[in-house]
Design a binder for these strands. Structure first.
Lengths: 348, 348
DNA sequence: AGCCTTCGTGCAATCGTGTGCACACATGGG
DNA sequence: CCCATGTGTGCACACGATTGCACGAAGGCT
């Protein structure tokens, strides 16, 4: 032990105070080792004698020590935090997405920092706060994000994934159900059931999710020489869809015998209107088809025919993309489509 | 400028690399100032000349610089992150709570780190991860947390608030609706409507939310010389409640003319059973009352009479408690009850 | 016995920001 | 003219963990 003795104590004041969180330094002092050794005890791949590791872990357990994820993040320049920016919590589809996202991410040791976009609000305003927290990636769903803002994320090296929405920007990923195909599949099915007067209840017409489904639906109808009879806005909400239905089935309208809705919440609104305010029978007089396959769709009093969005697979896909960084190629290459499935129940 | 020149360059290598996030140091180099000056430009209460501050903010804007919340958290020992631990995302009441929580917290510049407890799971397993992230407080809702675990949080100085659940632990806060009062109010109302054979559909009987409502309900009945005819478990779910209803209204049962359910989801399940599988009319033959006042309760085809939980006020209360640290006194003092309100619609 | 490799640990710098202290300079009062 | 008071800025260290490098010890090989 002829090592130079440094001129001052490298751990000058005892840092053990009651009521504060223990740090690696506290453990190090108690065991007479360096803080770096504490680190290594918690790292699977570090070289450290098994005996010492066990002593450290035991003491950590006793003192309630856990390495600080904040300090680690600073050093590693990875926080393990994924920002989830989400609007429209009123549609049960999105809480379901949220739940699945959270569960899947935790399996890989990552956390969800949630940002709810207030109804009618804009994700842009949130982005400064999102970026301050040095999140590893951003997932946006049911919300708008301007192109300058997603560029800002790009400049900072933060990958962005849109869930259930497609944007014409090759620098961000998009993960969707194959909306257009499924729209066509619905048309196909309805025509096969001898429906001849189909209508569509849309969400916002500037959102890909709605327009893709609509385009597919019209294409499917056209393939059988038919055309859409009516297209009304339902604003993605139950109340909006009831309103829309009252317009569709108001007096003096063409006789509609099938309604395809851009989501389940609206389909349930349409059903509600038909049952309470008309004498039309579902499905005999009018077929109703939704999209998403939310939990309520399967309830026996609804028993809604709908398109199932494969939430688990879509999220697996999105999480896979997070780890790839930012898309390299064209708009088409930045899009991932996961196949949906038509679920036949009692309304069509 | 006769200041001593230090023996080495304090900012040795130029740190401006493309593709990386700009830091205070990058700005400092560009402007020839110290990094601490950059900090001060972003702090309202720091002394700094207005002119220099403007120059700094302008450059920050141009370079896309934002102070790192991670580094700041390390220094200040406050992260501004609140952990929200939540189970039962299938009940729309909780996403609504989540949304409101997130919006209210952001108003005070704080963020939500979300932990979803998988169905049937336990919050205990999540706590190590929660604590690693040095959250400023933990809010638990619709999930169980063991006493040793909440003690661990206590030792680390992290306040814990239970939302919509009461625990017998004076070291953690609880925020509830005045469940027992409202249970009594429901009984009062039903008896006043000449209901004489009341039943209760419970959630888990080891959760205060259910037992308080039940106790109040029984107390209210007793005040009018009545007793509960039946009490069945609905497991908080729609399917469970349908099942429970089929037992309540199965053949050979006493004639029940009112059902009070521990939440709206179950009340809707009971309604569904009554409408689809019996010839009983609601409310003429049977009254149904729920609890929560979720969005679906107000839909015209449900029009459910229920108890409104004042979500906004409960969350305001919970957030107020977060800032107070940990409760100091008795179990009773650690409980905050916010008054609910009976909402009369068409089912009772 | 001597050399080389492997193992286990300490040292010190680093991540990016916040903050107490010191210092230079300007201002005002006596 | 001198001193007390403010103002604006830099310096250096702290926050808590990670990590490349160095070094001593141990063990295998010839």
């Amino acid at each position: 032990m002829t090592r130079d003795i440094p001129p001052y104590d490298p751990l000058p004041r005892s840092t053990v105070r009651a009521g504060a969180r223990p740090t690696a330094r506290h453990l190090a002092e108690r065991l007479g080792v360096a803080t770096s050794t504490i680190t290594r005890a918690f790292d699977e791949h570090s070289r450290i004698s098994e005996k010492l590791r066990q002593r450290i872990l035991a003491l950590a357990d006793e003192m309630g020590y856990q390495p600080s994820a904040i300090a680690r993040s600073l050093n590693r320049r990875r926080t393990g935090i994924i920002a989830l920016v989400m609007g429209d919590m009123a549609n049960p589809f999105y809480p379901a997405v949220l739940e699945e996202f959270s569960l899947q991410l935790r399996r890989t040791g990552r956390q969800v920092l949630l940002f709810v976009v207030p109804p009618g609000g804009d994700a842009d305003q949130l982005m400064p706060q999102v970026l301050q927290y040095q999140v590893d990636a951003i997932v946006v769903t049911a919300a708008k994000l301007s192109s300058p803002m997603s560029n800002l994320c790009g400049r900072q090296g933060v990958p962005v994934v849109f869930m259930n929405r497609r944007v014409g920007d090759p620098t961000v990923w998009s993960v969707c159900c194959d909306n257009e195909c499924m729209g066509a599949a619905v048309a196909e099915y309805l025509v096969g059931q001898n429906r001849r007067h189909c209508a569509f209840v849309s969400g916002d017409l500037d959102v890909s999710t709605t327009t893709d489904r609509l385009r597919g639906f019209e294409r499917g109808l056209a393939a059988h020489g038919q055309r859409l009879i009516a297209c009304v806005q339902g604003g993605y909400t139950y109340a909006g869809a009831r309103e829309a239905a009252s317009r569709l089935f108001g007096t003096g309208q063409a006789k509609i015998d099938a309604v395809f809705c851009a989501n389940d919440v609206m389909a349930l609104g349409v059903l509600s209107h038909l049952r309470l305010n008309t004498s039309l029978r579902v499905p005999q007089d009018v077929a109703v088809v939704g999209f998403d396959d939310i939990r309520d769709a399967a309830y026996p009093e609804n028993s809604l025919t709908t398109v199932r969005q494969p939430v688990r697979e879509m999220i697996e896909c999105a999480i896979g993309l997070l780890d790839e960084g930012r898309p390299g190629g064209s708009v088409a290459q930045a899009l991932r489509e996961v196949p949906g499935r038509l679920v036949l129940r009692s309304t069509a």
